Amino acid sequence: MLSQQEISDRFEIQDLLYHYADLIDKQQIDELRNSVFTADAQIDYSAVGGSVGDLDITLEFLKASLTRELFPNSQHLNANLQIRVDGDTGQGRVMCFNPMEMRLSESETQTYFIGVWYVDEYRRTEAGWRICSRREEKSWVFNAPDFMNL
């Protein structure tokens, strides 16, 4: 049976995961530093062609690649959250269904879909739960532009 604290912790982590997705889709990348990741976070987005590294490298990559000019619309839909909490740390595996609209030219866009799993480690901080490690595992890709090599 789960304790009230563990139930509360799981809900807080769930909210953190939804907040991450919302910030990514709003392209509010700087806010990830303040409300999602720990300062020493390690993030690996290489499964779908992204960066690997610390928080600074990750935020630089996201700012350069997730622009309205290139991706006018996206949705990061999280599901099948598997969260385990042990005191002030936790682990998770989260499914993400990610449709992305990509601008190919001034008048043409293409929508493609990515399915990934986030494999996470969480840490309780003075400011609340934060992601201290995130690694993507690619599940599938549908309709990506040929030049993307996903």
Score class of each variant (00 low, 15 high):
Val85Tyr: 03
Gln110Glu: 13
Phe71Ser: 04
Asp30Trp: 10
Ile83Lys: 04
Phe71Lys: 09
Ala39Asp: 14
Gly50Ile: 01
Asp40Met: 06
Met148Cys: 08
Gly49Ser: 01
His76Pro: 07
Ser51Trp: 00
Ser35Phe: 09
Ile24Arg: 09
Ala79Asn: 11
Ala47Glu: 03
Thr125Val: 08
Gly87His: 05
Glu108Trp: 08
Ala64Val: 03
Val48Lys: 08
Arg33Tyr: 10
Ala21Ile: 03
Ile24Ser: 01
Tyr112Ile: 00
Asn98Gln: 15
Glu60Trp: 03
Arg84Asp: 14
Ser139Lys: 11
Phe61Pro: 01
Ile43Phe: 03
Cys132Ile: 08
Arg68Leu: 13
Glu106Gln: 14
Glu121Ala: 13
Asp44Thr: 01
Arg103Leu: 11
Glu31Thr: 03
Gly90Asn: 02
Glu60Gly: 12
Gly128Asp: 07
Trp129Pro: 05
Asp44Gly: 05
Ile29His: 04
Arg103Gly: 04
Leu66Thr: 04
Gly115Gln: 08
Gly50Trp: 04
Ala21Tyr: 04
Ser3Cys: 01
Asn98Trp: 08
Ile131Asp: 01
Ser107Pro: 00
Arg135Asp: 11
Asn149Ser: 14
Asp56His: 13
Val116Gly: 02
Val48Phe: 12
Tyr45Ala: 00
Asn143Arg: 04
Glu31Gly: 06
Ser3Glu: 06
Gly92Tyr: 00
Phe113Lys: 09
Gln5Thr: 14
Leu62Tyr: 08
Asp15His: 12
Gly49Lys: 00
Asp25His: 01
Asp120Asn: 09
Ser105Ile: 10
Gly87Gln: 05
Tyr20Thr: 04
Ile114Trp: 00
Glu6Thr: 13
Cys96Val: 15
Cys132Pro: 03
Tyr122Leu: 07
Cys132Val: 13
Ile13Lys: 01
Gly50Met: 01
Asp9Tyr: 10
Asp30Pro: 07
Ser139Gly: 12
Ser35His: 07
Tyr112Ser: 08
Asn149Tyr: 07
Arg123Lys: 14
Gly49Asn: 05
Met100Glu: 11
Ile114Arg: 02
His19Glu: 11
Met102Trp: 05
Ala64Gln: 14
Lys138Asn: 10
Asn149Gly: 11
Leu32Thr: 05
Gln91Tyr: 13
Pro145Lys: 07
Trp129Ser: 03
Leu150Ser: 09
Arg124Gly: 08
Phe11Ser: 06
Met102His: 10
Leu62Ala: 10
Thr67Gly: 03
Glu126Leu: 10
Glu121Gln: 14
Thr109Cys: 10
Lys26Ala: 15
Glu101Lys: 11
Thr58Lys: 06
Phe97Asn: 12
Trp140Ala: 01
Val85Pro: 06
Arg134Ala: 02
Asp88Gly: 13
Phe71Trp: 00
Phe113Ser: 07
Met102Ile: 15
Val85Phe: 00
His76Val: 06
Lys63Glu: 14
Leu55Tyr: 02
Leu23Ser: 05
Asn80Gly: 12
Asp15Phe: 06
Ser133Gly: 02
Thr109Glu: 03
Ser139Phe: 08
Phe97Gln: 13
Glu108Tyr: 01
Lys63Arg: 15
Thr125Met: 14
Glu121Leu: 11
Thr109Phe: 01
Glu108Cys: 09
Ser46Ile: 11
Val141Gln: 05
Thr38Asn: 06
